[in-house]
Nucleic acid binder design. Structure first.
Lengths: 199, 199
DNA sequence: CAAATAAGGAACAATTTTGTTCACTAATTG
DNA sequence: CAATTAGTGAACAAAATTGTTCCTTATTTG
């Protein structure tokens, strides 16, 4: 029989390699279903492993999901850095594009069901809010603050509500329509955010 | 034994009365779970009836959900009417408050899971888009158009993107935070929509 | 190269859930 | 008031899914 080991990843993954694969399977499953529908069965088969490997590591789906969300490789490890381009428009575009890219990954696509069913899993949603939403808002706020200092934006723009406009438009655009390309982002910035914050 | 018929609705509901109760049960169930988790079992017990009454009317959950969404009593029968207050600000507030009220009913709370899992049920989402989202956008657009004619808004405001801002902010505010009160609506109108459409 | 560790996959029984139907009786109709 | 229609609740078997464990074997370690 022909040796296919060059085509496949090492036949039997171990340790962190397997853990990472499991995390990705968790997020992928979450992305197309919901937390309630998650089972060790589905996760194992999506990760291409046996259930025993999961039971050896975690005892409940909740534990596993929290671990996958917190993991720095597959989940939301590090908050985005302020772009610091020196111009408000460029900062906004850079930030929102980073956001769109995150939404297009498994971890991002896993967000929607978590938000949608937040009333069923307050603790999971709280985690998501702390790890994802909050940091993004902080960075956006700092970008706007710098713009105000440069005189590029009105001081009155520094409200939570205005800060939320960009991400929320992106989020719903992504959920309702599917893809959000660069043109869409530029339009949101030019048609909405810039006029909204103009001094 | 004491007669409790004064306290309860007629012991045994029939015809449209029962159908309406079933529709409401469907939407309530949908609101706290998802389409995948809907079963004739849960619906029947939520509606306080037997499964046989359901099977006599519909043969699949999908049929039943579409019927509930389309029903004029429980679902989204009629599109909202343009408020026509004569002032843009008042029109916007009236419209968005109507929207918030709809979101706070079972039919509105059933929306989130449907949007969240739209990739799993394109036909259901299409229905929702046609029955709910589209009509709301049309009305908002007509309100803005009138404001432009009165010189209250810039002609450049008549874009689908700008029209979408209000409903999207409301939607996410409701989903992330819970309630959206009148103060919140007024703030959205005054901080975001009015500045955004100013001539 | 031998021993130890841990992955893969299957087998398992138990619990839960499914759709469907039946008998009983309340409500309606003529 | 008799006959018909239709809701209720229970019973049911079939099917699917659950968490858990065991055995074989690939990989690593000393």
């Amino acid at each position: 029989m022909r040796d296919i080991s060059v085509l496949m990843s090492p036949t039997r993954r171990r340790g962190d390699a397997l853990t990472t694969a499991i995390f990705q399977a968790v997020l992928s499953e979450l992305a197309v279903s919901s937390f309630e529908e998650l089972t060790f069965d589905k996760i194992a088969s999506a990760a291409g492993t046996g259930k025993a490997a999961l039971y050896r590591r975690w005892s409940t789906p909740a534990e596993l999901v929290l671990a996958a969300l917190s993991d720095s490789a597959t989940g939301f490890g590090d908050p985005p850095a302020p772009p610091g381009t020196g111009a408000l428009r460029d900062d906004l575009i850079a930030l929102l594009e980073h956001f769109v890219r995150a939404l297009d990954q498994p971890r991002g696509r896993a967000l929607l069901p978590l938000i949608a069913h937040r009333h069923r899993h307050p603790e999971l949603f709280e985690q998501v809010h702390r790890l994802v939403i909050r940091p993004h808002q902080e960075v956006l706020l700092s970008v706007l603050r710098q713009a105000v200092e440069r005189g590029e934006a009105a001081p009155g723009s520094l409200t939570p509500r205005i800060v939320s406009v960009g991400p929320r438009l992106i989020l719903l655009q992504a959920w309702e329509g599917g893809l959000v390309d660069s043109g869409e982002i530029a339009s949101i910035v030019d048609e909405v955010l810039i006029p909204l914050t103009r001094p």
